[in-house]
Amino acid sequence: MSKIIVMTSGKGGVGKTTSSAAFATGLALRGFKTVVIDFDVGLRNLDLVMGCERRVVFDFINVINGEAKLSQALIKDKRIDNLYILPTSQTRDKDALTREGVERVLNDLSKEFDYILCDSPAGIERGALMSLYFADHAIIVTNPEVSSVRDSDRILGVLNSRSRRAEQGLEPVSQQLLLTRYDPDRVERGEMLKVDDVLEILAIPLLGVIPESQAVLRASNVGMPVILDEASNAGQAYTDAVGRFLGEEIEHRFVSPQKKGLFSRLLRRSA
């Protein structure tokens, strides 16, 4: 049986797609057969971040509507063996996502895959609701910023009341926090919420802290999940988070400011 993960946040632009691409790639690198699905109907982007935008022929909605077979719409990653992408439609709207249709596709995928990762759109409308409805695990992507934290709390409420597991009285969807775009220097200056502040408020376990990193933009420029940039902070932080997701105990890195040499300190002071 496969596990269904949703990458969700409520708020837009916090790093769901970046994290979905990184996580799916990380799980596949660990040997799990993984598919990542774009639920952001009308605003297809996962394909770009994964670097497969030129290979999209059919999409998720085509499969739901029976216009294409699942095997025709799945795109196999060129770099990593166990990794597949199911892109979304660029032209339709989110009403095309019917619960029955989504369930059918997920059932078919679960016969083949170890992990099904759903990249949620922003908001709490149909697309977001459908992406989380069937989830076993939820990764709550949050930025250390007031509106993102509040929206994450909203989404936790939705997971606890409107997911399949909630509606059917099953074991609740497991929930973990992925705090992204974290800037330890700003935290130290008192300008940004600390990891502990966010944890205290949301009260869910911490999966990882992804630092604000220029590597993320570089990676998306070239269509490569940032986790493959092994030299980058962000890439390493995602690798750690995947390890933790699989139950390993890994200490959190990149949560305090990098030790600076005297030279760069002098530079900052004069800046």
């Binding site: 910023e145 007031v146 934290v149 509040r150 709390d153 935290v187 008192g190 300008e191 940004m192 919420l193 600390k194 502040d197 205290e200 408020i201």
Partner: peptide, 13 residues
């Protein structure tokens, strides 16, 4: 400002 952010969040939430 981060302290104020935390307090505001705790109250509204």
């Amino acid at each position: 400002s981060a302290v104020q952010a935390k307090e505001r969040l705790q109250i509204v939430m």
